[in-house]
């Protein structure tokens, strides 16, 4: 994701002199070096100083530029939270706050580096758009949107490097603000976004093997949420499974249940998220997800307990 983001910003920056990258001593490798070399005026490293990174991005946007403010998700959003809220959102400025390593991606670095409540924190800000792409293709689409939109700030939650492409055969196109089916089935709908889309696909594959017809709905835009599409999915399936790498408070699971209540949906909902805990586990990303109960096996086991195993 990181590399595709950098490549896309470089490509767009060649055509649009308004595009700037402002980082706080953390840089996406690869293509961003080309951007830095070719457009040195439009690449700023504030040093280890996130508050001025966001404040400066606001001032640059007020003068017509389109900054991408980039660092590790916790530092991009939590450290300068009030700058994100006041300088960007309150002033409706088109600045993209790019958080690398959303969720527990920095799995060996401990809780200080885990952005496990970033979706809730960013979504709580009025006027903030929250996008969490699931693969490099979605990163490219989302970055293009961020570079050209004029609505206000976006929190763009990225994973790391090396994620597989999951959506090249998606049955519906990517559009910010619209959930889309990657695959369309009849019985069970798995909703996910971001890095846990891989879990969603794996769980879906296992359930299909067991004879279920499974839809995969990618909810890459958490805010504004495509409630119409979610309501439709709740109506069209007997079971809805939500898998997300974020806190149980303020994530997609709770939002889907709100829609279900409002729509008087007649389906069962199974929501999986990170635990509401700081977990002192170090290892692979998959090991951290497993510690939070988000391994494919653990998810399948709980689903089987609810819907039976054929």
């Amino acid at each position: 994701m990181r590399n595709r983001f950098a490549e896309t910003v470089y490509r767009l920056g060649q055509e649009d002199p308004r595009i700037c990258v402002i980082v706080a001593d953390i840089s996406p490798a690869g293509s961003i070096e080309k951007f830095r070399t070719e457009f040195p005026d439009r690449f700023i490293n504030t040093g280890v100083a996130e508050q001025v990174m966001i404040g400066m991005a606001a001032g640059m946007a007020q003068r017509g530029l389109r900054p991408f403010a980039y660092t590790i998700a916790t530092f991009a959003l939590y450290r300068p939270f009030e700058m994100v809220r006041n300088d960007l959102a309150y002033q409706s400025l088109p600045v993209t706050v790019v958080g690398i390593g959303g969720g527990v991606v920095y799995s060996t670095l401990g809780g200080t580096h885990h952005a496990q409540e970033d979706i809730a924190v960013a979504s709580a800000i009025p006027g903030m758009t929250v996008i969490s792409p699931c693969d490099p293709l979605e990163v490219e689409y989302a970055t293009e949107y961020c570079a050209t939109q004029s609505q206000g700030p976006v929190y763009l939650r990225l994973g790391k490097a090396g994620e597989p492409v999951l959506t090249e055969d998606a049955v519906e196109p990517f559009e910010v603000g619209k959930a889309r089916y990657i695959r369309r089935g009849r019985d069970i709908c798995i909703m996910s976004y971001g890095m846990t889309m891989k879990q969603a696909m794996d769980v879906g594959g296992e359930l299909e093997k067991q004879g279920h017809s499974v839809s995969i709905l990618c909810v890459h835009t958490l805010k504004p949420l495509d409630t119409a599409k979610i309501a439709e999915a709740l109506g069209d399936h007997d079971h809805v499974v939500i898998i997300e790498e974020t806190s149980p408070h303020g994530g997609l699971g709770g939002l889907v249940k709100q829609v279900a209540f409002d729509e008087k949906a007649d389906c069962e909902i199974h929501a999986f998220s990170l635990k509401d805990e700081f977990i002192h586990v170090y290892g692979s990303h998959q090991a951290l997800l497993a510690a939070h109960g988000l391994s494919t096996d653990a998810i399948l086991e709980k689903i089987h307990a609810r819907i039976g195993k054929d």
Binding site: I44, G55, M56, G59, M60, Q62, R63
Partner: peptide, 9 residues
């Protein structure tokens, strides 16, 4: 910080 961003732009 905002002023700095404006001045830089």
């Amino acid at each position: 910080s905002i002023s700095l961003g404006m001045a830089y732009a």
